[in-house]
Simulated scan of single mutants.
Amino acid sequence: MSAVLKVAVDGAHPYAISIGADLLDDGVLLAATIRGRHALIVSDSNVAPLYADRVQAALQAVRPDLTIARLVIPPGEHEKTLQRFGEVLDALAGLSATRDAAVIALGGGVIGDLAGFAGACWMRGIDVVQIPTTLLAMVDSSVGGKTAVDLPAGKNLVGAFHPPRAVIADTSVLHTLPDRELRAGLAEVVKYGVTAVSLDPADAGFLDWLEAHAEALLAREPAITAEAIARCCAFKAAVVGRDLLEHGDRALLNFGHTFGHAIEVEQGYAGTHGGGLNHGEAVAVGMVLAMRLSAALGLAPASAGDRLQRLLQRLELPTSIPEGLAPDALLTRMRLDKKADAAGIRFILADGAGRARVVPGVEEATVLAVLAG
Rank of each mutant, 00 (worst) to 15 (best):
I224P: 00
P222A: 15
I131A: 05
L92M: 13
H213I: 11
A118Y: 02
T133W: 02
L210W: 01
A93Y: 04
S141M: 05
E181L: 13
K155T: 03
K155R: 07
H213Y: 11
A169Q: 03
R99T: 04
I168L: 07
I111H: 06
A137T: 02
A216H: 10
A93D: 13
I224E: 04
I168S: 08
V110I: 13
L151V: 13
L92C: 11
N156W: 07
A148L: 08
A153I: 07
D127H: 07
Y192F: 14
R99L: 10
L174G: 12
A102W: 00
V173L: 05
V128N: 00
S141Q: 04
S141H: 14
I168Q: 04
W209I: 10
A214W: 03
G144R: 00
A216T: 14
T147P: 09
S141I: 01
V149S: 04
E215A: 15
R165K: 15
E215T: 14
V139C: 06
H213G: 08
I104S: 05
L174R: 11
A219K: 12
G94N: 11
T134D: 10
G144L: 03
P152K: 14
I131N: 08
L177R: 09
A169R: 04
T98L: 14
E221Q: 15
G145E: 08
G185A: 04
L186I: 06
Q130S: 12
L89D: 00
A93L: 15
D200G: 04
A101H: 02
L89I: 12
R180G: 05
E211P: 04
L89Y: 02
A204I: 09
R165C: 11
A137Q: 03
D150L: 03
R99S: 08
L207F: 15
P164Q: 13
G107M: 11
N156V: 05
L135C: 05
D200E: 02
V173H: 09
V190P: 00
S96G: 12
L136N: 07
K191L: 09
G154V: 00
L182W: 15
A214K: 01
S141R: 14
F161R: 06
H162Y: 10
